[in-house]
Design a binder for these strands. Structure first.
Lengths: 253, 253
DNA sequence: CGGTGTGAACGTCTTCACAGCA
DNA sequence: TGCTGTGAAGACGTTCACACCG
């Protein structure tokens, strides 16, 4: 968590808002699907529906990237795919290491969504000597002892931690020391990292707990104190905090 | 409740901000760790550090739950664990089904974080007949055909979708029709659900893409202000905005 | 004195509504 | 005409700073 309290004074306005960045992958996915169906153009309304957001938000988001649409027509699918990919840095190759090849690590190694988006699983690393050499998703697992060498040899700057909670901080420290500056953490731990290192977390049980909160509230409302029937229209459009990353994220979110 | 006016009459209001709800599991995890070390009380400063947030935010968050602290002392760990658990609805049992027992589904079934927080894996469901009967994490996999019966028999209201993208919407529809009102979606798809159903999504590749965005920006900054900006001349502005917890501020000199 | 609880200031994100262009 | 792009308004979230109390 980077103990240093870095305060950002004022806002330079040319940066893309974080909330927008978090939605770009969503738009990209929807656009890729359209591209595969050879759809040449989309309106903000259509694309927004496909991405699960509203159209005003989508247009605002795109306005931060530039004016890539045509008034009266919509957006050129191919062009937009390229622009968003470039903005996200997906036009380059990102070698990634996954540390901790348990159930989750194996799932990640097999996950097709990585390779298709410019990410390349450069190595799988596990602390269990019995795993060493065993191929997972066609990639032989290597031992933690060689972690630093692997990072350096492959020029890895992004690491994925899928170890048990107890090992996560130690692995994180070694990754950072070896040159990794972005970490995706699946272990249920708060990682301490130096300034300049980004950590995103995905915590499976946190997501469930948030669902439980809302679930409980639904149940409570049905027998609510003021007796009002709570079904649908009574509340606002609710149900909507799904599409947001974050945060929660994710897991994190 | 109409028109969202909802003024909070001081204490015990059901209007907890979503951002706060998303952090409660984090506090709970930190508190549980303290509880296990038999620490009787914590200050907001200490607990905030353990949870990876700042203390003002934590105090504000807790203020929405009520006044559970003691001025000059801090918070009673056990009491707070109970209050947060109750608020999140974790004092009751939540039967959960996992649909799609591939690598990821198996990882989820084995994930200890579920069981330890009031969630009980009531059933594992997969469309592959060859999987039927095979035990994963000690629970026999059942076939999709029996989905509705399983949901009803177990009173399941929370479902986890870990299927391939193509099957997700269909599975979702069946879950909802059978009575599920909260869904945690791991498939890279936007799910359409009726009002009253909550969906949270965890997308592994989206998280990596967000990291790539920041990673790219770091690399670009090292190259200096006149570094290559392919098309847009308006890029290069910093405002390094970290994903979660704490954020590195990469400042231009 | 030390640390909580909270109004008020501030910043960020979303939504509205319409000007302006193809 | 139809849809993008965007200022302005509003909702939401975070941080500040200090009153208040054990």
């Amino acid at each position: 968590m980077a103990t240093g309290r870095t305060h950002r004074p004022a806002t330079r306005s040319r940066g893309i808002p974080e909330a927008t960045v978090a939605r770009l992958p969503l738009y990209l996915r929807a656009l890729t699907a359209l591209s595969e169906r050879s759809v040449p153009t989309v309106s903000s309304e259509e694309l927004a529906a496909a991405a699960g957001v509203n159209s005003a938000k989508l247009r605002k988001d795109f306005s931060y990237l530039g004016s890539y649409g045509t008034r009266g027509v919509g957006y050129d699918v191919e062009y937009l795919v390229y622009q968003i990919s470039r903005e996200l840095g997906l036009t380059q190759d990102w070698p990634v290491v996954i540390v901790g090849i348990g159930n989750l690590g194996a799932a990640l190694a097999n996950y097709g969504g990585f390779a298709s988006r410019g990410f390349r699983v450069a190595a799988l690393i596990d602390a269990d000597p019995a795993m060493a050499g065993k191929p997972v998703a066609g990639i032989p697992v290597q031992h933690t002892d060689d972690l630093e060498k692997i990072i350096e040899d492959n020029g890895v700057s992004i690491g994925v931690i899928a170890t048990p909670a107890g090992a996560a901080q130690q692995v994180c420290d070694r990754l950072v020391a070896a040159g990794v500056t972005s970490i995706l953490n699946f272990a249920p731990t708060v990682l301490a990292v130096p300034d300049g290192v980004d950590v995103r977390k995905v915590d499976l049980s946190i997501e469930l707990q948030i669902l439980a909160f809302h679930e409980q509230r639904k149940a409570g409302e049905e027998a609510g104190p003021d007796g009002a029937a709570p079904t649908a229209a009574t509340r606002k459009e609710s149900t909507d905090q799904g599409p947001e990353g974050d945060v929660p994220a994710v897991m994190p979110a």
